[in-house]
Design a protein around this nucleic acid. Structure first.
Lengths: 381, 381
DNA sequence: TCATTATACCAAAACGAAATAAAAAATCAA
DNA sequence: TTGATTTTTTATTTCGTTTTGGTATAATGA
C-alpha cells in the first residue's frame, strides 16, 4: 500500500545535504545544558557492581547493601560508595537483579490497547510507580482472549511479584488467573474476583454514576434511550453502570427496552458503526448512553452523518472522561474517572499486599459527572 | 480532590453481595473455552529449564538448544523436548536470559507520552515485534529533558542490544546518546543523526507533505496562514514539514510571516490555548497548519469558542492522521503517516543492524494527504 | 577480666539460561 | 577394521546481583 519514496545510503555527514535545511525564520533556544550531555555520555558506559566495589575499595556485598538501602552499612562508607556510584552514573543490571526471586518487580497488563482511557490510566500508574522507584514490566494486549494468555505467559516469564490489571476482565478470565500465586490489583471490580485469595480492586462507583446518567437523561425528558456497552457480565464494571442506569429509569417508572442495547467494542470505529445502524433503524430514540467516550465520539460523528444534530436531535452521554472529551464539538457530557487517584490507590494496595502481606481490599472511588454540551433538554415537536 | 466513597473489607465470597447484581436483560455468550482456562492455570506454575531437562531426560543444554532453535539437536530429541515443554506450558525466565550479554532485547523509548500518534506508533512497533517474537523493554517519557535521561538509564539497566526511539529528538539530545554503543533506529530524521555511527531512521517524507499542505491552502485561496509547531530545529521532521510548507507558498510569491508561527506542545490543551490567543489577536488569518492532529483538534474547539466556524471562517489542516481525525466535527483534513509501515521498517532496520551488522540507512516513506472537511475554499467578503 | 552483643564488613554460594569446550556417538572413506 | 569427520550430547563456566553464613572489631555488661 505504501511504497518507499527514497532510501538514502547516508553513512557520513558529508552526504547529508539531501536533508539540508534552510535557516528557519524563527530561532529556538537550546534546551539541554552541556553538563547534561556529558552525563548522558557516561550513562551508556556499562559498569557492574564489581567495578564500583573495586573503585570504592569495599566488597560487592557492601555496594549491594548501599544500593538497596540496607541498614548495616557505616554512614561514612555508605556516603563514599554513593559518591562513586554517582560519579560513574552506575545503574544496576535489571536482569541480574531479577534473577534472584527476592526482587520486587511489578507487572502490568493493559487489556484494550486502543482505548485512550486505559492508556491514560496505564500511564498514570507507570508515572506513579516511577515516582516510587518501582520497576514495571508492562504488556499491552488487544481485547481478544488468546493475546491475554500470551501476556500472562510473558508476565510470568519476568517473574513479577505483583500484577496490576488495567481494563475489564470478564469472569472467565478472572477464573483463568485464579491460580496465579501473586497479589493482583484489578482496576475494575468483578464479582468473581472476591473468590480470588490475593486480589484487590480499585474502581469507580459505577452503579452510582450509571444512576446519575440515567437521572440526567430522564430529567432532560428522554424516554427512549440507547445504551452502547461492551460485553458486560454480572459483576463487571460495565454491568454495574448499566444496572445503575436502569435503576434510575425504573425509579421513574420507565423500563429499559433490551432492544436498545448494543454491544460494541470500545473504539471510535465501533461507536460510529453502532450509532449509524442503531439510529437509522430507531428514529424514535432521542438519547444515547455510551459506556466509553470513544464510543460516544464515534457515535456523535455517525449522528452527524445521519443528518441529525447533537444535542438538538439526540443527546449523548459518555463515560471515562478521556482528554478529547473536552475538545469535541459539541463538548462531551461524561462521567470522568479519576485516573490519578485510581493509579495511586492501585499501587498502594499492591505494595501493601506485596510488602506487608495485607489482606485484599476492594476500593470504590468517586467519579465526577461532567455536564457539558452533548446532552440537552428534549425538544417536543 | 477525590474521596473514597466506600472501602469494603471483602475477603470471602459470602460478603460479596454489595456487588450483587440483578440479572441483565441481555445475555452474552461466554467467550473463553474451558481448555483455555485449564491452560492458563498451568501457565502460572513456574518451571525452570532444569525441570524440563529432568523430565525429558536430557541435559539443560539440549533444552536450551531446543528453545533457541539451534540446529545441532536430533529431530527426535527435539520433538520429545518440545512435547514436554508444550505439555507443561514452560516459559523461560526473562531475567536469566537477559543476564547473558548474548541476548537480544530491544529497547524502545517513547518521548511524548500523551501524544496519540506516538502511542499508536509505539503500539504498532510492539505488535510487530511480538509477531517476530522479539522481547521489548519500553519506556514512556514526557517531553522534558530530565525524564529522557532517566529513560536512557533504565534502558541501559536492561542491557538492551538495540534501541528504537519514537518521537522527535532535538539535536542536543541526539548528541547526548552518540556514545551509546548499540544500534538505534529513530522514527524521525534529524540532521545531527548522520554523525551517529550506528543510527538509522525511518520517517515520512515530511518536506513533500509540508509542500502539499502549503499548496492545498494556497489553492483554496488562503494567504495569511498560521503554523503551530513544536520547537523544530534544523534537520528535524518538523522543520522539514515547515520548510516544504514555506517553499510551496514562496513558489506562489507568498512569504510566510514569522509572526504567524506559534510554538506549542503537542496536546489538545496546547492547541486550544495557542489557537484561542492567536486567532483572537489575528482576525485576518484564515487558515491554520497544525503540525500535529492533537493541536488541530484543540484549535478547532478554540475556534468554535471564538464564535468562528471551521472551515467556513478558518480552514485547519493537521498532521499525523490519528484515529480521532476521522471522527471530529468537521472531519480533519490531515497528512496521514503510515504507522504500520514505519513500525515494520523500523524493526527490520534495527534487526539488520543487530544481527547482520548492516550499515545504517535512512529511509523515507510516503504519507497520504487526506482531504476531508476541515479545510475549504476561502469565501471572499 | 571474660563473655555477650552489636556493628560493619566480606567470601562464596545461589539464581536460570546460554555458551564453551569437550566428549560420545554416528557416519563415512579407505 | 581403522582413522577421520560429522553429528549429537553433556559438564562446566559465565553473566551481575542478592543472600547466606560468617568473621573480625568495637562496645557493653557482669
Amino acid at each position: 500500500m505504501y511504497s518507499v519514496l527514497y532510501e538514502s545510503e547516508l553513512t557520513t555527514a558529508g552526504k547529508c545535504d539531501i536533508f539540508g535545511m534552510k535557516t528557519l525564520p524563527i530561532s529556538f533556544p537550546a534546551t539541554l545544558p552541556e553538563t547534561c550531555i556529558a552525563e548522558a555520555h557516561r550513562i551508556m558506559k556499562s559498569l557492574t557492581i564489581k567495578d564500583i566495589a573495586r573503585m570504592a575499595e569495599v566488597s560487592v556485598t557492601t555496594v549491594s547493601r548501599v544500593l538497596n538501602h540496607r541498614p548495616d552499612v557505616n554512614p561514612d562508607t555508605r556516603r563514599h560508595v554513593e559518591e562513586i556510584i554517582e560519579a560513574n552514573h552506575f545503574t544496576g543490571n535489571t536482569n541480574a537483579r531479577g534473577l534472584k526471586q527476592s526482587n520486587e518487580v511489578i507487572g502490568m497488563i493493559v487489556r484494550g490497547r486502543s482505548n485512550p482511557f486505559l492508556s491514560s490510566l496505564a500511564e498514570a500508574i507507570l508515572e506513579r510507580g516511577a515516582m516510587l522507584e518501582d520497576s514495571f514490566v508492562t504488556d499491552y494486549v488487544d481485547e481478544r482472549g488468546d493475546e491475554f494468555l500470551a501476556a500472562l505467559r510473558r508476565t510470568r516469564a519476568s517473574r513479577v511479584k505483583g500484577l496490576i490489571f488495567v481494563g475489564s476482565l470478564i469472569d472467565d478470565r478472572v477464573r483463568a488467573i485464579r491460580d496465579l500465586d501473586i497479589p493482583i490489583v484489578f482496576t475494575t471490580v468483578n464479582a468473581e474476583m472476591a473468590s480470588l485469595p490475593r486480589a484487590s480492586s480499585v474502581s469507580v462507583d459505577d452503579r452510582t454514576m450509571g444512576r446519575l446518567v440515567g437521572e440526567e437523561l430522564y430529567s432532560l425528558g428522554h424516554r427512549r434511550i440507547a445504551v452502547f456497552g461492551s460485553n458486560p457480565v454480572a459483576g463487571d464494571s460495565l454491568a454495574r453502570r448499566f444496572q445503575g442506569f436502569c435503576e434510575a429509569l425504573e425509579s421513574h417508572g420507565v423500563a429499559f427496552d433490551p432492544e436498545c442495547y448494543r454491544e460494541t467494542r470500545f473504539s471510535y470505529d465501533a461507536g460510529y458503526d453502532a450509532a449509524r445502524s442503531f439510529f437509522a433503524g430507531h428514529p424514535d430514540a432521542t438519547a444515547l448512553f455510551a459506556m466509553s467516550d470513544t464510543v460516544a465520539v464515534g457515535a456523535i460523528r455517525a449522528i452527524h452523518d445521519l443528518g441529525k444534530s447533537v444535542p438538538k436531535d439526540i443527546s449523548v452521554i459518555g463515560y471515562d472522561g478521556i482528554d478529547i472529551s473536552r475538545f469535541t464539538v459539541p463538548r462531551l457530557t461524561t462521567v470522568e474517572q479519576p485516573v490519578g487517584e485510581i493509579a495511586r490507590r492501585s499501587i498502594n494496595l499492591l505494595l501493601e499486599m506485596m510488602d506487608k502481606n495485607a489482606a485484599p481490599r476492594h476500593v470504590l472511588v468517586q467519579a465526577d459527572f461532567r455536564r457539558r454540551d452533548s446532552a440537552a433538554v428534549l425538544e417536543k415537536e
